[in-house]
Amino acid sequence: MLAAALLLAAEEAKKTVNPILPVTEEIVWAAASFFLLWMLMRYVFLAPVMRVMDEREGRLREARAEADSASSGADDAVAAYNARVDVARVEANGIVAAARDEAERYRARQLAEANAAIHAQRDQASAEVGAAKAAALAQLRTQVAGVAVSAASRVVQKDLALDAQLQVIEDYVNGSIEGGTR
């Protein structure tokens, strides 16, 4: 009985099959399963997943665009700030230059005033010096003339006319001075 069953099983197992060739029922089930899967995926189950992904992508794109616009706004603000800073800098430079000009002018004015004052003082002083020199010279000249006339009158034992001698001396001195300076 057992041997017969084993024989039967062995007969069934020994039945030559080609392991390469497909079997009808497996083709049927494979095709049925795949078409079931394909149709369900195509018309029912893939769409929601894709929609979620598209939604997320859209949201990402929106967020990115928002971020881009925000960053471009920030860029604008930075540019405006820079422009204002530039204006302020130009203004400050102008103020500084004006102040410098003013200071320069003031300094020049002061310098000129000081120079003028110095010149005036120097002129005055040289004039005073010249006057004093002339006075001293005149005084010296009269004294020298007096001395010379008196000495001459003593030499000649005769009173000389002081005024005439003075004129002579005057001429001589002037000539000698001119000769001396010459």
């Binding site: 029922e25 497996e26 049927v28 089930w29 494979a30 399963s33």
Partner: peptide
Amino acid sequence: QAYAFNKIAFINLLAA
């Protein structure tokens, strides 16, 4: 039968 259901068919169905 043509619709004989064995392990291979079960795996195919399960995969789907």
